[in-house]
Simulated assay, not measured.
Amino acid sequence: MKAIGFKKSLPISEANSFIAFETEKPTPSGFDLLVKVQANSVNPVDFKIRQNAAKDEELETPKVIGWDAVGIVEAVGEKTSKFKVGDEVFYAGDLTRSGSNAEFQLVDERIVGKKPKNLSIAETAAMPLTSLTAYEALFDRIKINPEKDQGKSVLVLAGAGGVGSIAIQLAKKLGNLTVIATASREDSIQWCKDLGADYVVNHHNLKEELEKIGHSQVNYILDFVDLEGYWETAAEIIKPQGHIVSITGSSKPLNLDLLKAKSVTFSWELMYTRSMFNTEDIDRQHEILNHVADLLDNGTLKSTLSTTLNGFTVETLKEAHRLQESSKSIGKTVILF
Rank of each mutant, 00 (worst) to 15 (best):
P128C: 08
A261G: 04
L95S: 15
I72E: 10
E24M: 09
V112L: 02
I111V: 11
H286A: 07
G30M: 15
S251K: 15
R284S: 10
S275G: 04
A160H: 12
N219E: 13
K302F: 10
F31C: 09
D194W: 06
S153L: 13
K115L: 10
N205F: 06
L129W: 01
Q241A: 14
E136G: 00
N118Q: 12
F18H: 06
L59H: 12
V42D: 00
M127Q: 11
A293Y: 00
A160P: 09
L157C: 08
Q169N: 07
R110G: 06
M127H: 06
I142Q: 00
Q150Y: 07
L222H: 01
N52D: 14
K239P: 00
K332L: 06
I4M: 12
K114W: 14
V154E: 03
E236Y: 01
K36S: 14
R141K: 15
L317F: 08
A197G: 06
V73L: 04
D94F: 15
V201M: 01
D297W: 05
D87T: 10
I237G: 00
G214P: 11
L259C: 04
Q169H: 04
Q241R: 14
V314E: 04
S263D: 10
S81G: 11
K82H: 09
V314Y: 00
S165H: 15
S13R: 14
N118E: 08
V107M: 11
E287C: 01
E228M: 14
G229L: 04
Q38Y: 09
E232A: 07
E269V: 12
D56S: 11
K252C: 02
G162C: 07
F21A: 06
E315I: 03
L254P: 12
E208H: 10
F18L: 09
K8T: 12
L170D: 15
H291G: 04
T23R: 14
D283P: 00
V163S: 01
D94V: 05
D56Y: 15
S188N: 13
S81L: 11
G93T: 03
L33F: 12
K143Q: 15
A134M: 03
L177H: 11
I244W: 03
E280D: 10
R141N: 11
S131N: 06
T233A: 07
L256R: 08
W191C: 00
K55E: 06
V45E: 03
G175P: 04
I189N: 11
A92M: 09
T23H: 13
V70M: 03
N255T: 08
K302T: 08
A125K: 01
L174T: 13
G214S: 04
F83Q: 13
E78P: 14
E186Y: 13
A181K: 02
H291W: 09
